[in-house]
Simulated scan of single mutants.
Amino acid sequence: MARPETKILYRDGGYSRARGVALVLTGAILWGVSGTAAQFLFQNAKINVEWLTVFRLLASGLLLLGLYYRKEKERIWGIWQDKSGRASIILFGLLGMPGVQYTYFAAIKNSNAATATVLQSLGPVIITCYLAFNLRRLPGFREIIAVALAVLGTFFLVTHGSIHRLSVSGLTLFWGLCSAFAAAFYTLQPRKLLRKWGSVVVVGWGMLIGGAGLSFIHPPWLVAGEFTFHSIVSIAFIIIFGTLIAFVCYLESLRYLSASETSVLATAEPLSAALLSLIWLHVSFGFYDYVGALFVMSTIFILSMKGKHASAKS
């Protein structure tokens, strides 16, 4: 799942750095596990991608806003009194939030959670390229290396080193790249909203609006699939642990760690998705898959080091 862009809320010397590390790792691992749970639902329980996306957005949005209602009551409703904020949150809710959720789930359905998560990890590289173009400046050395590694890693992941065939389906590649672009839009579009209203308000309303909008395409009461004990537990895990608790853990970690540190530690998401896919769903991951994933995830380290250096200079 794409992580919300935010900033450090505060640092309290009474809490240890280890607490922040534990929180971000918990959130990232829960995101990775929820991706694998979604893979189980699509492949074993035949749950519909559209229904799961709609239900997850509606349920998670209601839970997130409800959880923070007493604490953030004025901010939750205040965003609708801001004309520019109102237009921006509607755009984010109708395009950004459902876009990143649906494309990620569609990529999982056509492949597996590990591959989908790695492809979505190309998002930071797309953001880097967009910002370089938008600011009309040449990319720096670290950015060039990150882009080169991302391209090479994706090549290994989808071709296994052969230019004559794809090791994944065309739909997997399509939805995986769409997921990366959606993650980039999801991160860049609501920046002003996040600075003014905070992540809880923006993401909570984004989920609720996105779920309501998608309901016109696939109503949440049109359910398809096998609802066994295991599938119900998986759906509950995705909503409660893979969305709500993971999001809260990630937000809390930013009280103790810098944004660049959390983005590096959050690479535990694709690692946990890959490991659980191997153990639980017996997904085969070959040499080129590991190499491709390593190259793509290394770009996050490279770009985070750059961000940390830049922030230190400013």
Rank of each mutant, 00 (worst) to 15 (best):
S231P: 10
K308S: 14
C129N: 03
M207Q: 10
L244S: 03
F92L: 04
L122G: 02
I79K: 00
W80S: 00
R136E: 08
V24Q: 00
K71N: 05
S253Q: 01
K308T: 03
I238T: 04
A268Y: 04
L194I: 15
V168G: 11
A224S: 12
K306H: 12
V54N: 12
F105A: 08
L94D: 01
E72H: 09
Y15V: 04
T172W: 10
L52Y: 05
E261H: 06
E143Q: 15
L303V: 08
L254V: 09
K83N: 05
P98W: 13
S311T: 09
V33L: 15
G20P: 03
L58F: 06
G198K: 01
Q81K: 14
R137L: 09
F287A: 09
G242K: 06
Q39K: 02
L30I: 03
A266P: 00
S311A: 14
A224C: 04
E72M: 08
M305C: 09
K7V: 06
L173I: 13
S253W: 04
G206Q: 03
R75T: 00
F287K: 12
F241W: 03
R19M: 13
A150M: 09
A274I: 11
G161E: 03
S199D: 09
R195K: 08
W175A: 07
C178S: 14
E261P: 00
P98R: 12
S314Y: 08
F301S: 07
T36D: 03
F185W: 11
R165N: 09
G204C: 03
L52Q: 10
A310G: 12
V24L: 00
R3E: 03
G292M: 10
V151R: 05
I300Q: 08
V168I: 12
R195A: 09
G292F: 12
L265I: 01
S169D: 12
S88R: 14
G27V: 07
T243I: 02
E72D: 13
